[in-house]
Design a binder for these strands. Sequence first.
DNA 1: TTCATACGCAACCTCTAGGTTGCATACTAT
DNA 2: ATAGTATGCAACCTAGAGGTTGCGTATGAA
Lengths: 107, 107
Amino acid sequence: MRRRRAKIFAALGDETRLALVAKLCRGSDLSISELTETAADARISRQAVTKHLRVLENAGLVRCSRTGRERRFSYRPEAAEEMREYLEFVTAKWDEALERLKTFVES
Amino acid sequence: MRRRRAKIFAALGDETRLALVAKLCRGSDLSISELTETAADARISRQAVTKHLRVLENAGLVRCSRTGRERRFSYRPEAAEEMREYLEFVTAKWDEALERLKTFVES
DNA sequence: TTCATACGCAACCTCTAGGTTGCATACTAT
DNA sequence: ATAGTATGCAACCTAGAGGTTGCGTATGAA
């Protein structure tokens, strides 16, 4: 469980991959070469983009499907949603702690 | 902005650091040696924990303060909250895209 | 004062993330 | 059939992450 979370966060922990996610979450299916041109502000090679996409796919943030000679990548919302819930959980724990401290001080 | 997000996600993208965050978000101020004993399930050296804490601090996920010969670390909720909001934003973009697709198909 | 504790700093090691290039292959289009 | 496009695979490189150990220093306790 913790390993899975670490994997997903790590996948999001890179500017290039964040840019790719930002592109893909807009809804379009994009090929590797399309993603290479636009998503990465930095001039980055196609192979580098391919590797980043593999990382995102392994983390479950993206799915891929072949159509002819192309591989089109699309966003996959579950993983990010899980992480959002986890961060919510962490914040909730923190708020509980604050609350406990507050009532302790007041008593 | 994107750089900052990548930094925070990257800080969360490690099992050991996730364990530290999980400990600290419970509300207690903990010293490095306390965190070394408990938080890391794996036997890890104090120095390693120190480095992880530095990463968390640089990402703004944790704050530290000296008391005597100790440095006590405590959780800091802003960064995680920002990331939660960002993931919410990403999910919202995705949902918009789905909605557009749906109304397009229906028309 | 003396001893133990909690740390900082620095050197060092190993592995892998992120990047590149070159070449081969599989489709598409003409 | 041929040329161009989209990709896979493999070798390679470099910097940095994650880890360790050794040693010095400051603080708390006896």
